[in-house]
């Protein structure tokens, strides 16, 4: 493909980077990324990936924009209250960069649809807010050999890791199974500093861009944790589990499975 003059100007700051250049930009323009969760993490990730010129962005979210989302979910604005998040998100993406093809996936991501959902995409970005979704996405991506970025945020803390096919650890190597429903407070109960979503979601966007373009070293084999009050970033080496039930040599999880819906999905508990 040849760049138009407008593309050269829009993406000039990428093209100027020696390591990135026109090659990296072409790869982005031909890439397809699925963002599951158009919320705190998915918002900055979607906006930066759209601005960066990722060719197609899929947004998967079954929720509508709520007033309590707006403290951190910057894909959505006050005028979007009540809209499906995928619709509001698509509008923001196209306002930033009308060249992006946006695919809307407004349903709930579940064991029976996750594999077909992720299939057309080159990279999956987990921007969900609950353990059942995170394990589901992990298992589906490992089984389908799809690279993905995991992240989670709560209170003043965030974490992320990147999984590449055949290169553990996966999320399940670190956290074997979802915690019991009441063990960990959800975002709704515990709170989260809004800008934390920005920090970690942007790191996910960076990891996505690195993986799509082959730039640098992806965050595989490590977990990065960030604690905002002390401004502590830590990069922790984490091994793959030899007996991981999904990415290990003798897997016992051969298909994605659903877990109990998280407490924070219950309406007006």
């Amino acid at each position: 493909m040849a760049f138009t003059n407008q593309q050269l100007e829009r993406y000039s700051r990428h093209i100027l980077l020696r390591e990135f250049g026109t090659k990296g930009q072409k790869k982005l323009l031909e890439s397809k990324v699925l963002i599951i969760g158009a919320g705190g993490l998915g918002s900055p990730a979607a906006m930066y990936l759209a601005a960066a010129g990722v060719g197609a962005i899929g947004l998967a979210d079954d929720d509508r924009v709520d007033l309590s989302n707006l403290q951190r979910q910057i894909l959505h604005a006050t005028a979007d209250l009540g809209k499906p998040k995928v619709q509001s998100g698509a509008e923001t993406i196209l306002a930033i960069n009308p060249e992006v093809k946006v695919n809307l996936h407004p349903g709930l991501v579940k064991a029976d649809n996750v594999l077909s959902l992720i299939e057309p995409y080159d990279f999956v970005l987990d921007g969900t807010d609950n353990f059942s979704a995170k394990f589901l996405i992990n298992d589906a991506c490992v089984i389908a050999r799809k690279p993905f970025s995991h992240a989670g945020i709560i209170r003043f803390q965030g974490q992320l890791l990147t999984y590449l096919p055949g290169q553990g650890p996966c999320y399940r190597c670190l956290f074997l199974k979802p915690p019991p429903p009441e063990a960990i407070p959800t975002c709704r109960q515990a709170g989260v500093i809004g800008a934390m979503a920005g920090v970690i979601g942007c790191l996910q966007a960076l990891e996505t861009i690195k993986c799509l373009t082959g730039l640098g070293k992806p965050l595989t084999g490590f977990l990065v944790t960030f604690e905002a009050l002390g401004m502590d970033f830590r990069k922790i080496k984490v091994p793959a589990r030899a007996d991981c039930p999904v990415c290990g040599p003798r897997p016992t999880i051969l298909a994605p499975e659903d877990y109990d819906p998280p407490a924070c999905d219950l309406k007006n508990p």
Partner: peptide
């Protein structure tokens, strides 16, 4: 910097 961007594209 579009001078250099155009130059890089030509070098491609």
């Amino acid at each position: 910097p579009m001078t250099f961007v155009k130059t890089k594209v030509a070098l491609d």
